[in-house]
């Protein structure tokens, strides 16, 4: 399935300036990293792609389904930037609730919740109330919630923020596993850690796409003398300067 945004314009209130302006983008298969400075419109783009908000102009489509269609939502998973703890729900109930919201039966959601928690190494905390989890643990539950209904498109808004290095490693292994099966669009400020492991990179600036292409094309913006481990950062800096990000 192909997720496509066509000439999307969006503002949170009609009288406010548009956060996204005539944005067109087609999500390729594999892992795509979405970069850009704060306020560039990354979160809004992900919200549009997830069907959380609808564009004022333009359309978001997944093959023949538009984002206004409820069936669209079944194929798209979304992890918001801030994962909200629910004091009344345990980790497993939280993940299962998200699966149920996405249309799964109660039993299927319950079973898949255990599998998703296992994937992010959180099964041992399945009975712990989400309000008692640390910030990093809560984000892993958020990742599990995005994985539970096995969507074809995964949209992740800064999923690694607040994770310690080991948790990031686990998360990157999960992404690697998934990137062969689904299309992933993930916003991050973690350029150095993740960009070199991605298949594609998109860079946003002031509500528009400043760059979209393969990781190799992105890294080609790095100056020749840069050490291999720092290429992603150097490429982003070079792009930032050329597009005045």
């Amino acid at each position: 399935m192909t997720l496509e945004l066509t000439e999307c314009t969006y503002s949170y209130r009609r009288w406010r300036p548009a956060v996204l302006q005539d944005l067109s983008y087609s999500l390729p298969s594999g892992l795509t990293i979405l970069l850009g400075p704060n306020g560039a419109g990354k979160t809004t783009m992900l919200k549009l792609a997830a069907g959380v908000v609808q564009p004022n102009n333009g359309e978001v489509k997944l093959d023949s389904l538009t984002s206004r269609d409820r069936r669209f939502r079944q194929h798209v998973a979304w992890m918001p930037q801030s994962v909200v703890a629910m004091p009344s729900l345990s980790s497993r109930e939280y993940v299962a609730y998200v699966g149920w919201l996405k249309g799964m039966s109660r039993q299927a959601a319950w079973e898949k919740a255990a599998q998703a928690l296992t994937r992010v190494e959180m099964l041992e905390h399945e009975d712990v109330k989400t309000s008692r989890l640390s910030g990093g643990q809560l984000r892993r539950v958020g990742v599990a919630a995005a994985l539970v209904h096995e969507a074809e498109i995964l949209l992740l808004d800064e999923p690694t923020a607040g994770m310690d290095p080991r948790q990031r490693r686990v998360f990157r292994d999960v992404l690697k596993e998934l990137s062969g099966e689904v299309g992933i669009l993930m916003s991050t400020h973690d350029v150095a850690d993740l960009a070199e492991e991605s298949d594609h990179v998109a860079v946003m600036q002031a509500g528009r796409l400043a760059f979209a292409g393969s990781t190799a094309d992105f890294l080609a913006h790095a100056p020749a003398e840069v050490a291999p481990g720092r290429m992603a950062e150097a490429a982003y800096t070079a792009l930032s300067e050329s597009y005045a990000l």
């Binding site: 959380v52 409820r70 069936r71 939502r73 979304w78 918001p80 909200v84 629910m86 919201l101």
Partner: peptide, 12 residues
């Protein structure tokens, strides 16, 4: 007491 965003993109 809800999941912002996630519930807005819910099938149910």
């Amino acid at each position: 007491s809800r999941l912002p965003g996630i519930e807005a993109s819910s099938v149910r």
